[in-house]
C-alpha cells in the first residue's frame, strides 16, 4: 500500500498521471534502473581496463569467455560440486547444533550460564586465527573444511535461537499452562514457532559466514573447490579465469539466501503481511 502511494506521488511529480497506482510498473522501472546501472558499470570497467596489463587485470568480456571455457571443460562444475557438498554438510550440521544448543540454553538457565561466555567470546573473535591450530588437530582434508565451516556458522544460529526462545511472549506460555500442555507441546507448538523468525535470521547470517568459511578453508587447507580455482588461477596470472569462481560464489550465496527466505516464508504463513 505504502509502495503504491509512493509510486503515485513519484509519477505525478514526473508528469505521468496514468501510472498513478500501478506497483508493477514501478517495480519494472526499478529493475530496469538496476540493470542499466550494471550495464554501465561493466562498460566503464571494460573501457577503463582495455589497455591494462592482461596478467593483472581482467575485463568483463575476457571473464565471460573464461567462464564459458571453464563451464565447457567441466572444471567449474566439479569445483562447485566439491565446494557445495562440503558447504551444505557443514551448514546443516551447524544449523542442527545451533538450534539444539540454542534451545537448551534458552530453556535452561543452568546451561545458559555455563555456555554463554564461551559462545560470546567465540562469536566475537576472528575465527581465522584458530585455523592454523585447527589444522594441527584435524589435518587439511575434508574434515578440516567441515570443522571450519561449522565453527564460522554455528554461533549466529545459537545466539539467535537463544534470543527467540527467551523472548517468547508470556501470554503464549500462559495458554500452554492454563490448558496443561505437556512440556513437549509447549516446545513444539509455542516456543518453536515463536522462535522461528529469530532462528531464520540466524541461519541467514550463518549462511554468509559459512560461505566465507568455505572459501577461507579452501585457501588455507588443501587447495580445492571454488576457492582452489581462485588461488590456482591467480597464482598462474590467469586473472580472467580466477574471476569465474568468484562469480559462481556470489551467485550461490544469493541463491541460498533466497532459499532460506522461501523456507522461512513457508513456515511463517500465519504472519500478517
Amino acid at each position: 500500500m505504502q509502495r503504491s502511494a509512493q509510486a503515485s506521488a513519484d509519477s505525478k511529480s514526473a508528469g505521468e498521471p496514468e501510472a498513478a497506482s500501478d506497483p508493477n510498473r514501478q517495480r519494472r522501472r526499478e529493475r530496469l534502473l538496476q540493470l542499466g546501472t550494471l550495464v554501465l558499470l561493466l562498460a566503464v570497467w571494460e573501457f577503463a581496463a582495455r589497455d591494462a596489463n592482461k596478467l593483472l587485470v581482467a575485463v568483463p568480456s575476457d571473464i565471460a569467455i573464461a567462464t564459458w571455457e571453464l563451464l565447457l571443460n567441466g572444471e567449474l562444475f566439479w569445483a562447485t560440486i566439491d565446494s557445495m557438498s562440503t558447504f551444505v554438510l557443514g551448514f546443516v550440521i551447524a544449523s542442527i547444533i545451533g538450534i539444539v544448543v540454542g534451545f537448551a540454553m534458552g530453556t535452561n538457565r543452568t546451561v545458559e550460564v555455563i555456555l554463554d561466555p564461551y559462545i560470546n567470546a567465540l562469536y566475537a573473535m576472528p575465527l581465522v586465527a584458530l585455523i592454523p591450530i585447527l589444522m594441527l588437530w584435524v589435518g587439511i582434508g575434508f574434515l578440516a573444511k567441515i570443522t571450519i565451516i561449522i565453527l564460522f556458522a554455528v554461533f549466529p544460529v545459537i545466539i539467535n535461537t537463544v534470543t527467540g526462545v527467551k523472548n517468547v511472549d508470556r501470554h503464549y506460555l500462559d495458554i500452554g499452562k492454563a490448558f496443561m500442555a505437556s512440556r513437549f507441546m509447549v516446545y513444539r507448538q509455542i516456543i518453536a514457532p515463536y522462535a522461528l523468525p529469530y532462528v531464520a535470521s540466524g541461519l541467514r547470517i550463518a549462511l554468509g559466514r559459512g560461505i566465507i568459511a568455505m572459501i577461507v578453508a579452501e585457501f588455507l587447507t588443501s587447495i580445492s573447490g571454488l576457492g582452489g580455482l581462485i588461488i590456482n588461477y591467480t597464482n598462474a596470472f590467469e586473472t580472467a579465469k580466477a574471476f569465474a569462481p568468484v562469480l559462481v560464489v556470489a551467485l550461490l550465496a544469493n541463491a541460498l539466501t533466497v532459499l532460506v527466505q522461501k523456507v522461512e516464508e513457508r513456515f511463517g504463513r500465519w504472519r500478517r503481511r
Binding site: D169, H171, Y172, D174, I175, G176, K177, A178, F179, M180, A181, S182, M185, Q189, I190, P193, Y194, W270, R271
Partner: peptide
C-alpha cells in the same frame, strides 16, 4: 491448573501460528 477449569484470556489468547481449529485442537491435545 486443571482440565476442570477453562480459561478465556483478555488478549493474545490465541496462538497466532495456529488456525482457529488448531487452537482448539491445542487444548484438546493437552
Amino acid at each position: 491448573p486443571g482440565h476442570d477449569r477453562g480459561f478465556v484470556f483478555q488478549q493474545y489468547g490465541l496462538l497466532p501460528w495456529l488456525t482457529a481449529a488448531q487452537n482448539i485442537g491445542f487444548a484438546l491435545e493437552a
